[in-house]
Amino acid sequence: MKKILILLLFVTSIVSAQKKEFKYSLSGIKKIVLESGTRIVLTAGNTTELVLSDNANNHKTYERDEHKEKLKEDKRKGLTAIYPGGKDNTDGFGFSITKEGNVLYVTDLKSTYQRHGIKLVLPKTMNISANAGTLGSISLEGFTGEVEVATNVGRIEMKNVTGPITANTSVGKIDIDFDKVSQTSPITISSSVSEIDVALPADTKADIELRTQGTVYTNFDFDIPTKKGMPNVSGRKTINSKLNNGGVKIYIKSSMGNIYLRKK
Protein backbone atom coordinates (compact mmCIF):
# COMPACT_ATOMS: atom_id res chain seq x y z
CA MET A 1 0.00 0.00 0.00
CA LYS A 2 2.77 2.36 0.94
CA LYS A 3 4.66 1.49 -2.20
CA ILE A 4 1.65 2.26 -4.33
CA LEU A 5 1.22 5.58 -2.56
CA ILE A 6 4.82 6.50 -3.22
CA LEU A 7 4.50 5.51 -6.82
CA LEU A 8 1.33 7.57 -7.13
CA LEU A 9 3.09 10.56 -5.64
CA PHE A 10 5.95 10.08 -8.02
CA VAL A 11 3.65 9.89 -11.02
CA THR A 12 1.71 13.00 -10.00
CA SER A 13 4.91 14.89 -9.44
CA ILE A 14 6.03 13.96 -12.92
CA VAL A 15 2.67 15.00 -14.32
CA SER A 16 2.78 18.33 -12.53
CA ALA A 17 6.38 18.84 -13.61
CA GLN A 18 5.32 18.17 -17.18
CA LYS A 19 2.77 20.88 -16.90
CA LYS A 20 5.47 23.45 -16.26
CA GLU A 21 8.04 22.00 -18.56
CA PHE A 22 7.98 20.11 -21.77
CA LYS A 23 10.97 18.14 -22.95
CA TYR A 24 11.72 16.82 -26.36
CA SER A 25 14.73 14.77 -27.34
CA LEU A 26 16.95 16.41 -29.94
CA SER A 27 18.96 13.43 -31.10
CA GLY A 28 19.76 13.87 -34.77
CA ILE A 29 18.45 17.44 -34.82
CA LYS A 30 20.78 20.11 -36.20
CA LYS A 31 18.45 23.05 -36.45
CA ILE A 32 15.40 24.35 -34.65
CA VAL A 33 12.92 26.55 -36.40
CA LEU A 34 10.85 28.35 -33.82
CA GLU A 35 7.81 30.48 -34.44
CA SER A 36 5.98 32.26 -31.73
CA GLY A 37 4.49 35.70 -31.38
CA THR A 38 5.58 36.20 -27.83
CA ARG A 39 8.58 37.12 -25.77
CA ILE A 40 11.02 34.36 -26.58
CA VAL A 41 13.93 33.63 -24.30
CA LEU A 42 16.47 31.08 -25.46
CA THR A 43 19.25 29.86 -23.26
CA ALA A 44 22.06 27.47 -23.96
CA GLY A 45 22.35 24.58 -21.60
CA ASN A 46 24.23 21.36 -21.15
CA THR A 47 21.35 19.38 -22.48
CA THR A 48 20.54 17.13 -25.36
CA GLU A 49 16.88 17.99 -25.10
CA LEU A 50 14.66 20.88 -25.84
CA VAL A 51 13.18 22.17 -22.60
CA LEU A 52 10.16 24.35 -23.10
CA SER A 53 8.53 26.33 -20.32
CA ASP A 54 6.24 29.26 -19.79
CA ASN A 55 8.04 32.42 -18.90
CA ALA A 56 5.21 34.58 -17.69
CA ASN A 57 6.26 38.12 -17.15
CA ASN A 58 4.51 38.77 -13.90
CA HIS A 59 4.45 35.99 -11.37
CA LYS A 60 2.32 37.91 -8.93
CA THR A 61 -0.56 38.22 -11.30
CA TYR A 62 -0.13 34.58 -11.97
CA GLU A 63 -0.53 33.77 -8.28
CA ARG A 64 -3.51 36.02 -7.87
CA ASP A 65 -5.20 34.35 -10.78
CA GLU A 66 -4.45 30.93 -9.44
CA HIS A 67 -7.97 30.46 -8.22
CA LYS A 68 -9.34 31.51 -11.57
CA GLU A 69 -6.89 29.18 -13.29
CA LYS A 70 -8.17 26.29 -11.21
CA LEU A 71 -11.72 27.03 -12.20
CA LYS A 72 -10.64 27.15 -15.81
CA GLU A 73 -8.89 23.85 -15.47
CA ASP A 74 -12.06 22.29 -14.13
CA LYS A 75 -13.91 23.54 -17.12
CA ARG A 76 -11.36 22.02 -19.51
CA LYS A 77 -11.58 18.59 -17.96
CA GLY A 78 -12.10 15.92 -20.55
CA LEU A 79 -11.67 18.37 -23.40
CA THR A 80 -8.68 19.01 -25.61
CA ALA A 81 -7.63 22.28 -27.14
CA ILE A 82 -7.55 22.39 -30.90
CA TYR A 83 -5.85 25.06 -32.95
CA PRO A 84 -6.11 26.30 -36.51
CA GLY A 85 -2.34 26.28 -36.87
CA GLY A 86 -1.74 22.57 -36.30
CA LYS A 87 -1.98 19.78 -33.80
CA ASP A 88 -0.77 20.26 -30.25
CA ASN A 89 1.69 17.50 -29.47
CA THR A 90 3.24 19.06 -26.37
CA ASP A 91 0.87 17.92 -23.61
CA GLY A 92 -1.29 20.98 -23.60
CA PHE A 93 1.55 23.44 -24.04
CA GLY A 94 -0.02 24.67 -27.22
CA PHE A 95 2.93 23.95 -29.50
CA SER A 96 3.22 21.82 -32.57
CA ILE A 97 6.51 20.04 -32.93
CA THR A 98 7.36 18.38 -36.20
CA LYS A 99 10.56 16.84 -37.39
CA GLU A 100 11.74 17.06 -40.99
CA GLY A 101 15.09 15.45 -41.56
CA ASN A 102 17.47 17.09 -39.11
CA VAL A 103 15.28 20.16 -38.69
CA LEU A 104 12.78 20.50 -35.86
CA TYR A 105 9.90 22.88 -36.37
CA VAL A 106 8.47 24.27 -33.14
CA THR A 107 5.40 26.34 -33.84
CA ASP A 108 3.38 28.20 -31.25
CA LEU A 109 -0.30 27.51 -31.74
CA LYS A 110 -1.60 29.99 -29.19
CA SER A 111 -2.14 33.60 -30.03
CA THR A 112 0.09 36.39 -28.77
CA TYR A 113 -2.69 37.44 -26.39
CA GLN A 114 -2.64 34.20 -24.47
CA ARG A 115 1.11 33.78 -24.32
CA HIS A 116 3.09 35.69 -21.81
CA GLY A 117 6.52 34.66 -22.84
CA ILE A 118 8.18 31.31 -23.36
CA LYS A 119 11.53 30.01 -22.37
CA LEU A 120 13.52 27.38 -24.22
CA VAL A 121 16.67 25.66 -23.12
CA LEU A 122 18.61 24.20 -26.03
CA PRO A 123 22.02 22.62 -26.60
CA LYS A 124 24.75 25.24 -26.97
CA THR A 125 25.71 24.24 -30.50
CA MET A 126 22.19 24.08 -31.90
CA ASN A 127 21.43 26.11 -35.00
CA ILE A 128 18.45 28.31 -34.32
CA SER A 129 15.99 30.09 -36.51
CA ALA A 130 13.44 32.09 -34.55
CA ASN A 131 10.63 34.26 -35.77
CA ALA A 132 8.81 36.35 -33.21
CA GLY A 133 5.96 37.31 -35.50
CA THR A 134 4.42 40.74 -35.29
CA LEU A 135 4.66 41.53 -31.61
CA GLY A 136 7.14 39.11 -30.13
CA SER A 137 10.70 39.78 -29.08
CA ILE A 138 13.72 37.52 -28.91
CA SER A 139 16.44 37.29 -26.35
CA LEU A 140 19.10 34.61 -26.42
CA GLU A 141 22.36 33.84 -24.76
CA GLY A 142 25.36 31.60 -25.12
CA PHE A 143 24.85 29.87 -28.45
CA THR A 144 27.74 28.91 -30.69
CA GLY A 145 25.65 27.69 -33.60
CA GLU A 146 24.11 29.72 -36.36
CA VAL A 147 21.36 32.05 -35.19
CA GLU A 148 18.72 33.48 -37.43
CA VAL A 149 16.11 35.79 -35.89
CA ALA A 150 13.37 38.02 -37.13
CA THR A 151 10.99 40.30 -35.29
CA ASN A 152 8.75 43.10 -36.33
CA VAL A 153 8.36 45.47 -33.41
CA GLY A 154 10.06 43.38 -30.77
CA ARG A 155 13.55 43.82 -29.50
CA ILE A 156 16.39 41.47 -30.43
CA GLU A 157 18.93 40.81 -27.76
CA MET A 158 21.88 38.42 -27.97
CA LYS A 159 24.66 37.76 -25.53
CA ASN A 160 27.78 35.62 -25.75
CA VAL A 161 27.11 34.54 -29.29
CA THR A 162 29.65 33.74 -32.00
CA GLY A 163 27.66 33.81 -35.20
CA PRO A 164 26.89 33.37 -37.97
CA ILE A 165 24.05 35.70 -37.09
CA THR A 166 21.27 36.83 -39.35
CA ALA A 167 18.95 39.27 -37.64
CA ASN A 168 16.21 41.47 -38.98
CA THR A 169 13.67 43.72 -37.38
CA SER A 170 11.51 46.55 -38.56
CA VAL A 171 11.13 48.66 -35.47
CA GLY A 172 12.73 46.70 -32.67
CA LYS A 173 16.03 47.57 -31.10
CA ILE A 174 18.95 45.23 -31.73
CA ASP A 175 21.62 44.51 -29.16
CA ILE A 176 24.24 41.90 -29.96
CA ASP A 177 27.24 41.10 -27.84
CA PHE A 178 29.71 38.75 -29.51
CA ASP A 179 31.98 36.45 -27.52
CA LYS A 180 34.06 35.86 -30.60
CA VAL A 181 33.23 36.04 -34.26
CA SER A 182 32.88 32.86 -36.29
CA GLN A 183 34.59 33.16 -39.68
CA THR A 184 32.40 30.58 -41.43
CA SER A 185 29.78 32.73 -43.12
CA PRO A 186 28.52 36.30 -43.17
CA ILE A 187 26.83 38.11 -40.31
CA THR A 188 23.92 40.30 -41.27
CA ILE A 189 22.11 42.59 -38.89
CA SER A 190 19.45 44.84 -40.30
CA SER A 191 16.66 47.05 -39.12
CA SER A 192 14.41 49.62 -40.67
CA VAL A 193 14.13 52.30 -38.05
CA SER A 194 15.69 51.20 -34.87
CA GLU A 195 19.22 51.53 -33.60
CA ILE A 196 21.64 48.66 -33.72
CA ASP A 197 24.18 48.11 -30.99
CA VAL A 198 26.91 45.57 -31.66
CA ALA A 199 29.89 44.72 -29.49
CA LEU A 200 32.82 42.82 -31.00
CA PRO A 201 36.04 41.54 -29.43
CA ALA A 202 38.95 43.87 -30.21
CA ASP A 203 40.81 41.21 -32.20
CA THR A 204 37.88 40.40 -34.50
CA LYS A 205 38.93 39.84 -38.09
CA ALA A 206 36.19 41.13 -40.33
CA ASP A 207 35.17 43.07 -43.42
CA ILE A 208 32.63 45.46 -42.07
CA GLU A 209 29.95 47.16 -44.09
CA LEU A 210 27.87 49.71 -42.25
CA ARG A 211 24.97 51.45 -43.85
CA THR A 212 22.58 53.88 -42.32
CA GLN A 213 20.99 57.23 -42.82
CA GLY A 214 21.57 57.75 -39.15
CA THR A 215 24.96 58.07 -37.52
CA VAL A 216 27.59 55.46 -36.78
CA TYR A 217 29.36 55.57 -33.45
CA THR A 218 32.39 53.38 -32.87
CA ASN A 219 35.64 53.06 -30.99
CA PHE A 220 37.19 50.84 -33.66
CA ASP A 221 39.72 52.44 -35.99
CA PHE A 222 38.02 52.93 -39.30
CA ASP A 223 39.79 54.06 -42.42
CA ILE A 224 37.23 56.33 -43.97
CA PRO A 225 38.00 57.20 -47.57
CA THR A 226 37.48 60.82 -48.47
CA LYS A 227 34.56 60.91 -50.82
CA LYS A 228 34.62 62.66 -54.14
CA GLY A 229 32.14 62.94 -56.94
CA MET A 230 28.37 62.95 -57.00
CA PRO A 231 26.53 63.69 -53.80
CA ASN A 232 24.40 60.81 -52.60
CA VAL A 233 20.81 61.63 -53.49
CA SER A 234 19.06 59.07 -51.38
CA GLY A 235 21.20 59.84 -48.40
CA ARG A 236 22.31 56.25 -48.41
CA LYS A 237 25.76 56.06 -46.99
CA THR A 238 27.99 53.08 -46.72
CA ILE A 239 31.12 52.69 -44.67
CA ASN A 240 33.38 49.80 -45.61
CA SER A 241 36.31 48.88 -43.49
CA LYS A 242 38.53 45.99 -42.58
CA LEU A 243 39.07 45.08 -38.97
CA ASN A 244 42.39 43.45 -38.17
CA ASN A 245 43.25 42.95 -41.85
CA GLY A 246 39.84 41.64 -42.76
CA GLY A 247 37.90 38.44 -42.37
CA VAL A 248 34.29 37.39 -42.36
CA LYS A 249 31.74 39.81 -43.81
CA ILE A 250 29.66 41.70 -41.28
CA TYR A 251 26.79 43.75 -42.64
CA ILE A 252 25.07 46.13 -40.30
CA LYS A 253 22.27 48.01 -41.95
CA SER A 254 19.73 50.32 -40.47
CA SER A 255 17.66 52.56 -42.66
CA MET A 256 17.29 55.31 -40.16
CA GLY A 257 18.61 54.21 -36.81
CA ASN A 258 22.02 54.89 -35.39
CA ILE A 259 24.64 52.17 -35.35
CA TYR A 260 26.79 51.63 -32.30
CA LEU A 261 29.81 49.43 -32.89
CA ARG A 262 31.74 48.75 -29.74
CA LYS A 263 35.16 47.30 -29.18
CA LYS A 264 35.37 44.91 -26.26
Binding site: K31, V103, N127, S129, E146, E148, G163, P164, I165, T166, T184, S185, P186, I187, T188, K249, Y251
Partner: peptide, 12 residues
Amino acid sequence: NTSASKRILAVT
Protein backbone atom coordinates in the same frame (compact mmCIF):
# COMPACT_ATOMS: atom_id res chain seq x y z
CA ASN B 1 20.95 26.16 -48.29
CA THR B 2 18.86 25.99 -45.13
CA SER B 3 21.20 28.44 -43.43
CA ALA B 4 20.27 32.07 -44.06
CA SER B 5 23.85 33.17 -43.56
CA LYS B 6 25.03 30.71 -46.25
CA ARG B 7 22.35 31.96 -48.61
CA ILE B 8 23.52 35.52 -48.05
CA LEU B 9 27.05 34.37 -48.79
CA ALA B 10 25.83 32.80 -52.04
CA VAL B 11 23.87 35.91 -52.97
CA THR B 12 26.90 38.16 -52.51
